[in-house]
Design a protein around this nucleic acid. Structure first.
Lengths: 352, 352
DNA sequence: TTACGCGATGCAATCGATTACATATTGCCT
DNA sequence: AGGCAATATGTAATCGATTGCATCGCGTAA
């Protein structure tokens, strides 16, 4: 019961010294240089030598010490993904795409969860400067003072995804939020809605702004009212969707377009609380098509973004940056599409 | 347009050599040892020296090279969190707890997303052996051949959370799945249900087994039928909940207890598809109380686990292991509670 | 046979921070 | 004044893998 932490084995941290490359070299009767080469590129050594080394490695259960390798090569093969809220399913899907490409390239993806806290954002930004990561993937729009003009942040290559700041040199993968929002509004207008409300995300974020612009222009193109009383600024959280309802319903909308699915669900809760049904009394269209959108009651009409693809593409771009290759395009805009389910329907009393 | 990757600054990767501690030492007119000490523990140097060093550091925008430090100290201050599916909100909440404690201790938490793929599991396990991480946090139950007996995995300290394998030396934080499942069944029995079905998780996972046992014993304690036709093995995914319904409803249950919330939602979809309402026709109780459970329609009755706390506790335990401290307890079992919402109600025709 | 070339291997420097040990400086006590 | 302790700093070894350069040996062509 006293020794509570460790088992001992050839490469353990607990007991005797771990096996090093020098040990393998000694056992195999060659130099460390040969061991290193044999491990990195088996083709450059004799079959005989390779065999001796392989056996020694297996016998001693040797693992390379990444710490030493990293120092020598001055790289970590790690990328840092800065995200505002990992619990948000929107981000976790993107992350899967990121992680996959990273893996394919022998990289590891680390998550830096900022909770939109500037202090933590700064801490993570520093991580890269301190060489704990080779590059950065920013899924977080509020890049505080970082907004330099080029795709390197204090010397650290980075790629932005979804959220962005302007700058021609910035590497960026995003979706056509503006067009998608117009699409959503057009869908509601087509159904016959004339008073369409909007629950926006925080307006200091580029995606919220873009979606808002799409909303306005969508309204204009359909020749509908653009009433300031029909706009509410939420925070992308479920509760803010609910909180929006009492105020918003004063303006008598028959449909609501929300800037993400969580707020859509919140809004539906708020409507339920007022005894209003979706879509019978009010239609709701969300944004993101998160994992639960289709399984919601009613299944959510929403804008689907190619999340996985965003993650993959952004990471591939970063890999290019890191390898010093020329980039084909620095900015990629992916298409979203409207997924029509059951939360949207024609208004109860046919809107003129 | 040609130079597409780098800006140059004092510590950049792009241009000239980055600033090292030796540079700072030269500028400040002291030795690297003094710089190192001044940075690690300002109290041990003269105010004067400290000032010179601070100025040099600020002027040159120096950042410590973590790679070198790691090698010398033979640690990474990184823990690897192995999880089966990061997109699952259950895990992302735990991760927030983990990340927070890690941060408090100057550690970084890396996610290893296995997708229950043995190959990836092995890859991540190796990461630790290769010293890319100081310790492991296993949120994944299917620990393949790893099931050694002690809290070190090939020499790497680890703590398990939620899922577990047996062994007195294993460090573990989990919840009382068995009791909680009994609680859920008791709740349904109290409402008057006599035929209660169960959608289980994969039965090779300890939590699924525990919840299943709780279900059986809960049934027994309430003196209810325990009909094999009322049991379905799902995979924790939404779709498997839906898929369970046609089969399960053959047994005419009036209530369903599911082993997680996703399957509960899936089940509700399946019931809807058959024209059945929840809770009017069938009651549903889930497990986990994920972020969207309360905002679902109907709001889900479910078992709430202290996710954040699980993450914190497990990480604190790991920190103890890493610092070589004695552990107070190696196993902690946290309490879950039943959150009663609207997806459960008395059966339509009073069950006699 | 000599020389050249190439493939395989070894030697030793290197990456940059940390730290044990040595040295130097100051002050204090008797 | 002499000696000891405490404090501040410097010197140099160290962590372990990688890699430029040197070397060795063997085969082949002139």
């Amino acid at each position: 019961m006293a020794d509570n932490t460790q088992v001992k084995n050839a490469n353990g941290r607990g007991g005797d010294k771990p096996t090093t490359m020098a040990d393998i070299a000694r056992i195999a009767g060659v130099s460390t240089a040969t061991v290193s080469r044999a491990l990195a590129n088996p083709a450059v050594v004799t079959a005989e030598t390779r065999e001796k080394i392989d056996r020694a490695v297996a016998d001693a259960d040797y693992r390379v010490n990444t710490l030493a390798r990293n120092l020598r090569k001055m790289e970590t093969r790690t990328i840092l993904v800065i995200v505002p809220d990992i619990a948000n399913p929107f981000f976790s899907d993107i992350f899967r795409g990121i992680e996959e490409v990273a893996h394919e390239n022998g990289f590891v993806a680390v998550i830096g969860n900022t909770e939109v806290d500037p202090e933590r954002e700064a801490a993570y930004a520093n991580m890269a400067r301190e060489r704990r990561a080779d590059g950065l993937l920013l899924l977080d729009g509020k890049l505080p003072a970082w907004a330099s003009g080029a795709s390197a942040l204090g010397g650290v290559p980075f790629v932005m995804a979804c959220e962005y700041v302007d700058g021609p040199d910035i590497c960026l993968v995003r979706t056509d939020n503006y067009d998608a929002a117009k699409l959503a509004v057009a869908h509601l207008a087509e159904l016959g809605h004339r008073r369409i409300a909007h629950i926006a995300g925080p307006l200091d974020r580029s995606i919220s702004q873009d979606r808002m612009r799409g909303y306005h222009d969508g309204l204009a193109e359909a020749g509908l009212d653009d009433d300031p009383a029909l706009i509410f600024e939420g925070d992308f959280g479920l509760d803010s969707g609910t909180a929006a309802i009492p105020t918003l319903m004063l303006g008598k909308p028959t449909a609501i377009f929300t800037s993400n699915d969580e707020m859509a669900m919140g809004a539906i809760q708020g409507l339920r609380a007022m005894g209003l049904g979706v879509p019978e009394d009010v239609s709701v269209v969300g944004f993101d098509d998160i994992r639960f959108a289709g399984a919601y009651n009613p299944p959510l009409t929403t804008v689907a973004q190619p999340r996985y693809e965003i993650g993959r593409l952004a990471t591939e771009m970063l890999m290019q940056l890191l390898s010093g290759h020329e980039l084909g395009q620095r900015q990629r805009v992916l298409n979203s599409s409207l997924v029509i389910r059951e939360s949207s329907a024609p208004p109860a009393k046919a809107g003129g």
